[in-house]
Simulated assay, not measured.
Amino acid sequence: MKLSKKRVLFLTIISTLLSILGVTGFIISYKVTYWAKHLGQYKLGDLEIFRKYSSTINILAVCSIILFLLTTLILMRVIQKKSRKAIAALSLTFSIIIGSYLFLCLFIYQNLDGIIKINHLVYQPKKIDQSTAEKIRLLYSDAEEIKINTSDNINLYGWLIKNSSVKEAPLLIYFGGSGEEVSDMLSIAEGLDGWSVALINYRSYGLSEGEPSKISLYNDANSIYDYFSKRSDIDNKKIVSMGYSLGTGIAVNLSSERSTVGTILVSPYDNYSKLKGNTISNALQLHNMFPLSYFIGESYNSIKKASSIKTPLLCLAGDLDKNIPIEYSKNLVAKWGGEKTMKTIHRGDHSFLFTSGDAWNEIKNFLKVV
């Protein structure tokens, strides 16, 4: 049997594509079926079709692999020299490995943002209704209710706690975690003597409207700053940005774009995509085989902005924090452009901010000197 070079090349390409299709079909079908069985709390969105039709997909995958074997057999019969056969076999093997990996990367890229969104893996909005808002109004009668209209006509709601009798009070602007509704901070904020505290909910949190995204939250933080800096009862030369967990990325961005005298970060990350990529890889048991951090849209790359900020930093991190391991916080602090202080909270988990008196003593001491 003798074939022209063009036909041999065509046969090689067809053989490789059939194998890639079969291998990736098997892997995707297996993984999705595994997720559906062992990760019941995860919603898979469009991937559900692979679980629903797994038998059909597996049959098609087997057929593709059989056709690959047949075309490979023909190819090996056509090639006469043993050295060329070996080269062809190696080329096919490497092409299948690389092609299957790239195809899986593309597949994950196409579906990852959907999995993140439907499972609330970045934003976990916590709403309150009007009856809860009324209870807050009665419990915290001194808290001023705030409504801020953004540039895209979205209303953000929250509170201003006034802990100072001076005409122009210094201001702490607080940005919460991914699952935090900021009224939880009202009682704590009342203890920051001498400082007014702004607690404004993210989009879709509390009573705030809209849907959160990285760009919208960055812009909203700037709008919050601009709103308060123009008030006659706020000292616009003494504003501190504070973030917890997810909110640390927003606080860092605000300090890089507006004039703040200091930044307080509690359980911060260096790069949210890297952190979330590792978290999702572990949850889906992908064993970091794929560069998921490059596929996640909400990047919050704090470390990229850290060196440009020349004002003081207070960083608090828990040594038992599993959500954001302390190494991520240390990476960010190392790149900070201004004076920096990092305090490790002994036996502190991810929620130590709400339970640790030591953490709040550190924050109060920092506010005294900025």
Results as ranks from 00 to 15, higher is better:
K43A: 03
K43G: 03
G45C: 01
G45V: 00
D46H: 13
L47K: 09
L47V: 06
L47S: 07
E48W: 06
E48K: 04
E48Y: 04
I49R: 05
I49M: 07
I49G: 02
I49S: 01
I49E: 01
F50Q: 02
F50R: 01
F50A: 00
R51E: 07
K52T: 09
K52H: 10
K52Q: 12
K52F: 10
K52E: 10
Y53D: 03
Y53T: 00
S54T: 09
T56R: 15
T56H: 15
T56I: 15
I57A: 03
I57E: 01
I57G: 00
N58R: 15
N58L: 10
N58Q: 12
N58G: 03
N58V: 07
I59E: 01
I59D: 02
L60C: 09
L60D: 03
L60P: 08
A61K: 07
A61I: 09
V62W: 04
V62C: 06
V62F: 08
C63Y: 12
C63K: 02
C63F: 12
I65T: 13
I65D: 09
I66E: 08
I66Q: 03
L67P: 04
L67F: 12
L67T: 01
F68M: 04
L69Q: 05
L69Y: 02
L70K: 13
T71Q: 05
T72H: 01
T72E: 03
L73Q: 13
I74M: 06
L75N: 08
M76Q: 09
M76C: 04
M76V: 06
M76H: 03
R77C: 06
R77L: 08
V78M: 06
I79T: 03
I79M: 02
I79K: 01
Q80C: 05
Q80W: 09
Q80L: 10
K81T: 07
K81D: 10
K81E: 10
K82W: 06
K82R: 07
K82S: 07
S83K: 12
R84H: 14
R84W: 13
K85P: 00
K85V: 00
I87W: 08
I87V: 14
A89R: 06
A89V: 12
A89F: 15
L90Y: 05
L92C: 00
F94V: 07
F94Y: 10
F94G: 05
I96C: 05
I96E: 02
I97N: 01
I97C: 01
G99S: 04
S100C: 13
S100Q: 12
Y101I: 02
Y101P: 05
L102E: 06
F103P: 00
F103Y: 10
F103C: 04
L104E: 04
L104H: 11
L104D: 06
L104G: 08
C105L: 08
L106H: 14
F107M: 06
F107K: 07
I108T: 03
I108Y: 07
Y109W: 13
Y109M: 15
Y109K: 14
Q110E: 01
Q110H: 01
N111H: 15
N111L: 12
N111R: 14
N111K: 14
L112W: 07
L112K: 12
L112Y: 11
I115Q: 15
I115S: 13
I115T: 12
I115G: 12
I115E: 14
I116E: 05
K117D: 14
K117L: 14
I118V: 15
N119G: 14
N119E: 15
H120A: 07
L121S: 12
L121V: 13
V122S: 09
Q124I: 11
K126F: 14
K126R: 15
